[in-house]
Design a protein around this nucleic acid. Structure first.
Lengths: 343, 343
DNA sequence: GTGAAAGCGCTAACAC
DNA sequence: GTGTTAGCGCTTTCAC
């Protein structure tokens, strides 16, 4: 079932079929109608492969994420897909399983079949990334700055987000705090880590991963250091931490407060509901697409975008044990939102 | 950067380059080495598009899921991707957002660019599905039987799974039970629904969706009917139900027991830990690939596979209020696992 | 307005 | 062994 079949049955040339099917208005309405009818009854579907080769473009973009099982990424991908779809682009998703090598392989593989790439929270190191993307196709990164002129990024103001939780916790009277640090290869983690260390006196840093099981495993280390507050790399880790604290019979937020990052849907459905730094997931996806679309066009837009997170205070954070009753001495923060702004 | 560039620089024909790069051993080792060296230093990457057109096959399969944000699907997809990767196939994932129309569009779109399709829990109706897949490329469905000879499936024995929870609940003394039914378009839901109605006397059926917010919203209706046990379409819904019960100050499992389906990772990290029917997600993915691979080969393997779920008893289910203390009268079930078996 | 023909980058007969 | 050649299914000048 090729364009030739349609052309023959419609008594026109393949060129004409192509014109009609691509909405060129330069065709006799009568012929156009005939072509449409025939291709409909033949259930003709042009081969995207052949179109891709002939056009030199596939109208497809690839997005690579470290872990689809972390609901954060699907949220971003969904918004991205909708936005790209509006511009008639398809998106294909791939999961690197938090593995830098696999990520690099996926970049290579996808590069051969798509018009552009969106790397969500890429884990590969700078040099490898630069090499993989070099001379390659239009690429945008989310959650990471990579060689700015080469690649354009949409990032989150992690410092702001971290400061927001930290100030909130300080106002509640907490003095000893732990940060459950995520993957060493995560740029967001590095930024968050830097922000805690800069803002909080002598924080306890516990290296962990990005999954609930990691959070579960890391709680004892934090507790041993005598903390009353635990800030986690992400919500999945925070969920694990909550579970461990419960297993250890530590009241949350009575004895220890817990906060996460991301604001995945589940954060609001657990007990106690999770206080977290919400990242604008949908906007992250949308903006990523917009940036990529620009690069796909003229090619050399070099602006990056920075989005602002917002603190969502729920039930997992409260007064530090032994703090004076009544409102905290710091300014009440509550749940504040900051508008995101381009940069 | 095409194969012609490599050929020129290596002083051979394009055919030879192609042979070398495709691992044909029919080439002079000296030439082969030279070709490899040149293509390496030119950083040559064959165009998957051109290869696809020339070979008539892309070595890529598409998988369509209703909702990537439900961790159940990423688990399946991950296992599927690993299995396909072992056979040198790439996987592209698409999310239909629980929308039958979108799903059909995705089938159409992907059909034009992949060698085979895996439809996870497809939501479109039988007729549309049959039409979309008809004469189309090799397809396998998971979680749904669709026109068996046309499409081959890997399904879960939902009846068995439902019976397991139901028996467990009955043994705990429950008499009034609600089933929070998922999307009407879900085959799994239809099967589970049929199983409750066949096995439980006068169950309360509450129509809901597939997300936590749906579960949250549906709890009052169940409570109004005076139930002491709630079985949910999936774990996400169960998480929402748990949250609502807490908001309503109903003790779980003291006053009401809750169970889900799937066993997503989070099920074990919430409070109380969720009793659920575990579906063999990894095996679902693996078997789907194996079935598709067979169809990709000779083409007409027509066997389907049925996998067995297992009841995982955690903390969200307990004795019905007012039941006699001591062990339940029914046979103790605990957490039992049944080996999955082909069919 | 329409068709013929060239070509996208690759593979695979088929000769040599 | 290796090169020549003919496509794969489509788009797109370029004549007519």
């Amino acid at each position: 079932m090729t364009i030739a079949d349609v052309a023959r049955r419609a008594g026109v040339s393949r060129a004409t079929v192509s014109r009609v099917l691509n909405g060129q208005h330069t065709v006799d309405p009568v012929l156009a109608e005939r072509v449409k009818r025939v291709s409909r009854q033949l259930r003709y579907q042009p081969s995207a492969i052949a179109q891709g080769l002939a056009r030199g473009a596939t109208r497809t973009v690839g997005v690579i994420v470290p872990d689809l099982a972390n609901p954060f990424f699907p949220e971003v991908v969904k918004a991205l897909t909708v936005a790209a779809g509006r511009d008639d682009f398809s998106v294909v998703v791939a999961d690197s399983d938090e593995d830098a090598k696999a990520e690099l392989r996926l970049i290579q593989d996808l590069s051969r079949r798509v018009d552009g790439l969106i790397l969500c929270s890429p884990r590969a190191d700078k040099a490898d990334l630069r090499r993989a993307v070099r001379k390659g196709l239009p690429t945008v990164c989310t959650n990471r700055l990579v060689d700015p002129p080469l690649t354009t990024s949409v990032v989150i103001d992690s410092e702001h987000g971290m400061h927001a939780v930290l100030d909130h916790l300080a106002a509640l009277g907490h003095r000893r705090l732990a940060y459950l640090a995520g993957p060493a290869s995560s740029f967001s983690n590095a930024e968050r880590l830097r922000a805690v260390e800069a803002r909080w006196p002598d924080p306890v840093i516990v290296a962990t991963g990005s999954k609930s099981a990691d959070g579960y495993a890391s709680v004892p280390a934090a507790l041993d250091a005598g903390v009353t507050a635990i800030v986690c790399f992400n919500d999945l880790v925070a969920l694990g931490a909550l579970a461990r604290l419960r297993a250890l019979a530590r009241a949350v937020p009575g004895e220890v407060s817990v906060a996460g990052f991301d604001d995945i849907a589940t954060a609001d459905f657990v007990q106690p509901a999770l206080t977290t730094v919400r990242l604008p997931k949908a906007e992250l996806g949308r903006r990523s697409w917009e940036l990529l679309r620009e690069r796909l066009g003229d090619g050399t837009s070099t602006v990056s975008v920075r989005l602002e997170p917002s603190l969502i205070v729920r039930e997992s954070t409260g007064m530090a044990p032994g703090s004076p009753p009544g409102p905290p001495t710091g300014a009440p923060l509550g749940s504040f939102e900051s508008p995101s702004s381009p940069n």
